[in-house]
Design a binder for these strands. Structure first.
Lengths: 105, 105
DNA sequence: TTCGACTATGTCGGATCGGACATATACTGC
DNA sequence: GCAGTATATGTCCGATCCGACATAGTCGAA
């Protein structure tokens, strides 16, 4: 978010921050959700890169469109296990998964 | 395993290989178990490095000695979620977790 | 605007996971 | 040997997860 928008929102009575501030997460909880978000974004990248729909990709993985949508949304009902297994199932390597976890915003 | 021992075993009718060969895992299944094993080893390293027992460490994490033993053993009943949460709970960073996943044998 | 393709969200039943307890095994000093 | 400490293994049941279905929302083309 740019400073202009942030200032406008805060001027209007909003507080602008991240999930940690808003939900008062502990540092390790924050790290965990960031890790999940990074994997979810990577999963979407992989799919879009290949020009696939959620339904196609889900079928490939033996899952459903709705669950795959939740994976990409890093829904609370989605485990890191599922994200990692899905990425590996789509051809990502262990090295790539690790890199994404280590370095993604 | 050294070649001598391998030869002796194979001479006696054993096949010597890795989990992938023995259980006939697919490449992504193999990558997944290796990833879990890497996290489990790292968890043990962190604990031993601090000079803690399993019981002490488990208590810190709000878990039990028996479950922590299974974490370190990468037991089938242990999820990657639990391993990652435990590592973060013991002070490991997201970057370290990613590195371990990407680079550990 | 209506249609069609794609994505998002809510829910449910069966499957898996996790803390806890009991118990077994391993190792060390006596 | 035995006792004490640490780790490993088996099991149970409540909690969470996952595929599936239904349905709602989004977007672009005709």
């Amino acid at each position: 978010m740019d400073h202009d928008k942030k200032d406008r929102l805060e001027g209007a009575g909003w507080r602008v921050g991240n999930a940690e501030d808003f939900l008062e997460l502990s540092p390790e909880e924050t790290a965990f959700v960031e890790l999940k978000l990074a994997l979810a974004r990577f999963l979407r990248n992989v799919r879009v890169q290949q020009g696939w729909t959620q339904a196609q990709t889900a079928k490939r993985l033996g899952s459903s469109q709705s669950r795959f949508a939740k994976m990409e949304a890093a829904d609370a009902s989605v485990s890191v296990d599922l994200l990692v297994k899905s990425l590996l199932g789509l051809g990502a390597t262990r090295e790539q998964v690790g890199e994404v976890i280590a370095r993604a915003a």
